[in-house]
Design a protein around this nucleic acid. Structure first.
Lengths: 123, 123
DNA sequence: TGATCCCCTTACTAAAAGGTAAGTACCGCA
DNA sequence: TGCGGTACTTACCTTTTAGTAAGGGGATCA
């Protein structure tokens, strides 16, 4: 497993929460599953351009282990697997709301800084 | 610098926000500065057992660059440096509030699971 | 027959993050 | 002279995270 020491004793709640969402794609997975309710592996992949199969699998497994994601396997051929958020996943998503808003603000701020830098004395 | 590629184009707000708080001690730095208002380097260090000077410096610099932390240097001998949160740092901290609550819940949940595992058929 | 789709798993490699330890330059104290 | 305190910087090394590439096993499509 790639999660050797993980989930240590936490100093505060932020610490504990950041632990389960830290990972390059976890925020996006949460977002995708929240927006669509249920998604299959390939659907998630298509919705997240740039993610590798390995990382997607790995993140989904970790999130499943952390009780954020529910994984339902259908014993069919070809195999079908459906992912959705658990109740904990949904509450986490709700808790991430204000942070997301802050992030949007930050993106806006950075963008305007870039504009200012690109247009030095535009009047 | 250790922040070679950093701060890429963000997919969503969560992404942008997580970028500035990901780092082993950043959440704790935010917490410390929020709780105390102003802290000196050595005070922060003492408040965060286990952090190395290198990591603390590095994180503080990154957070300063990200506009979260204000760094005031007094031209004295011995040197004195005071750290505090900027307005953005404070709003970020507020945005992290619900996430912190969620994390506390998670810690509580994990603790009770451990208790259940330790006391299999206690009743 | 081969190609593709499905949902992964495994092995190998590169990059980033983090840890350890020492050095810097100055001061006060003993 | 030597120690401790101030706030770092630098070099080196290990751990963790992420990327690339290939395989697997059954079914449908051409």
């Amino acid at each position: 497993m790639t999660r050797t020491p993980r989930r240590g004793p936490y100093i505060c709640g932020i610490d504990a929460a950041l632990d389960v969402v830290s990972g390059k794609w976890k925020g996006l997975i949460l977002w995708e599953l929240d927006a669509h309710g249920i998604r299959r592996f390939a659907e998630l992949r298509r919705g997240m351009p740039g993610v590798s199969e390995k990382m997607l699998t790995q993140h989904l497994r970790e999130m499943e282990e952390d009780g954020l994601v529910h994984r339902k396997v259908y014993a069919e051929v070809p195999p079908r697997v459906e992912y959705s958020l658990t109740e904990h996943g949904r509450t986490l998503n709700r808790a991430l709301g204000p942070l997301g808003d802050w992030g949007v603000e930050r993106i806006r701020r950075e963008a305007s800084e870039v504009v200012e830098a690109a247009e030095p004395s535009q009047g």
